[in-house]
């Protein structure tokens, strides 16, 4: 399940590739998805790709990939890999961990 990917090039490190593990229907997961879309649209609208994994549908995959809680966001690219857990409502924290200027949205 892949979200519409946009073209790459604006970010110096290339496109942001995210993988979001979620439990379809769970409030936190629903919120995380919305928050992730919002952040991507706002900060790197043209250079991101989001892969969604429904843990309820692929439960053993989450276990194999060491994902414990839902929602979990894994930043696959650019390196290094990063795991962010939670519904991403703490935008500041997300941006800081992604190494982006935090107050640029203003």
């Amino acid at each position: 399940m892949t979200s519409p990917a946009s073209n790459q090039g604006k970010h110096p490190n290339g496109a942001y590739v995210f993988r979001l593990y979620l439990a379809s229907g769970a409030p936190n997961s629903v919120r995380a998805l919305a928050n992730l879309y919002a952040i991507c649209r706002k900060h790197f609208p043209d250079s991101h790709r989001i892969e969604l994994i429904d843990v309820l549908k692929e439960p053993l995959r989450a276990l194999a990939e060491a994902v414990l809680v839902t929602p979990t966001l894994v930043k696959i690219s650019p390196e290094p890999e990063l795991q962010i857990i939670g519904n991403l409502s703490d935008e500041e924290e997300v941006l800081r961990s992604l190494g982006l200027p935090q107050k640029d949205s203003a």
Binding site: A23, N28, N35, V69, L82, G86, L88, V94, S97
Partner: peptide, 9 residues
């Protein structure tokens, strides 16, 4: 990194 609430679902 923790950014927001999560659950055990």
């Amino acid at each position: 990194v923790k950014a927001g609430a999560f659950d055990l679902t």
